[in-house]
Amino acid sequence: MPEAAFVQATIGDSEFDRDTAVTLREPGVYDIDLSAGWTIIGAVNGGYLLAVLGRALADALPHDDPFTVSAHYLTASRPGPAVVRTNIVRTGRTLSTGQASLFQYDEAGNEVERIRVLASYGDLDSLPDDVRTTAKPPAIPPVEQCFGPQDAPAPVPGSSAIADRLLLKLDPSTLGWVLGAPSGKGEMRAWFGLADGRDADPISLLLAVDALPPTAFELGISGWVPTVELTVHVRCRPAPGPLRVSIATRNLAGGFLEEDAEVWDSADRLVAQSRQLARVRLSN
């Protein structure tokens, strides 16, 4: 039989949309079953979690598009049932601000807060076209010259279920850690997309900033690098096509490092920026 044709998923009808969809229980309160498909070494990816909260706030607030989202990761989330509680802080003509927290239950049945978010939403399509910037898209080789988890002869450390849901092609110059020869530069660059072909939108940008391997790998540090705080700025609605993501760390001190990310679309526009603080487990 001939091979079935690939049908590209669309925004609103994709695995990402289904796995981040929240169900309204009562005003401001949403239920969700966190999918195991977005885990890394058993932990639910922080960008996926941010997209879940971002979707709940988009429903709760009068504006649809995240402009700035700041999250504090309090305890590790796990796949399974969760509750998102939202609160409208302020509404205005161009921006509205809200707070959201995600809770799960412990073994005793008590609610445990996993993440707390403060975010401002607006309408990206209403922004002026004037752009004055010195930022430039990252220099990444063509996608066919880059490598993803599926190209590795053995499983890539840190990759698991989420790798099957992403189209991730890493710049070879940031892959020294795979060969046991990390560059020490603390940089990671990649082409990014969703494996089912769904184009990016403002909510999926919240995933994109936290989907690459940690820059700590290129510093010669392996293992889990849990996020403490993550702030994302969404600058404009991305054009269809693959994204380019670059992440850099300049300072590791006291067991913590920062990661600064930029996300560029197919039209060479800077569509999102982020900074996160992460904890590093240094070996003695």
Score class of each variant (00 low, 15 high):
1 M>C: 13
2 P>S: 13
6 F>W: 14
6 F>P: 08
10 T>H: 07
10 T>E: 08
13 D>P: 02
16 F>M: 12
20 T>H: 02
21 A>S: 09
22 V>R: 04
24 L>Q: 10
25 R>G: 06
26 E>V: 06
31 D>V: 07
32 I>S: 08
34 L>F: 01
35 S>N: 04
45 N>I: 05
45 N>H: 13
48 Y>C: 12
54 G>V: 05
55 R>W: 09
55 R>A: 07
65 D>C: 03
66 P>Q: 04
72 H>K: 12
78 R>Q: 13
82 A>W: 00
82 A>C: 04
83 V>Y: 03
83 V>I: 12
91 T>Y: 01
93 R>A: 15
94 T>D: 14
96 S>A: 12
96 S>D: 06
96 S>N: 01
99 Q>M: 09
109 G>D: 10
114 R>Y: 00
114 R>M: 12
114 R>C: 14
116 R>K: 12
119 A>N: 11
122 G>Q: 05
124 L>K: 03
126 S>R: 15
129 D>S: 08
132 R>S: 13
133 T>A: 11
134 T>C: 15
138 P>N: 11
139 A>Y: 06
140 I>E: 09
142 P>Q: 06
143 V>W: 06
144 E>A: 00
145 Q>A: 08
146 C>E: 09
147 F>M: 09
151 D>Q: 06
153 P>Q: 10
153 P>L: 09
159 S>H: 09
161 A>E: 15
162 I>H: 15
169 K>R: 15
171 D>P: 05
175 L>Q: 12
176 G>A: 05
184 G>F: 07
188 M>H: 03
189 R>I: 02
194 L>P: 15
195 A>P: 10
200 A>F: 07
201 D>Q: 04
202 P>H: 03
203 I>G: 04
208 A>M: 10
214 P>M: 04
217 F>T: 00
225 V>P: 00
229 E>A: 15
229 E>H: 13
230 L>C: 08
231 T>C: 05
232 V>W: 03
235 R>G: 08
239 A>E: 15
255 G>F: 00
261 A>Y: 05
264 W>P: 11
274 S>Y: 06
276 Q>V: 03
280 V>R: 02
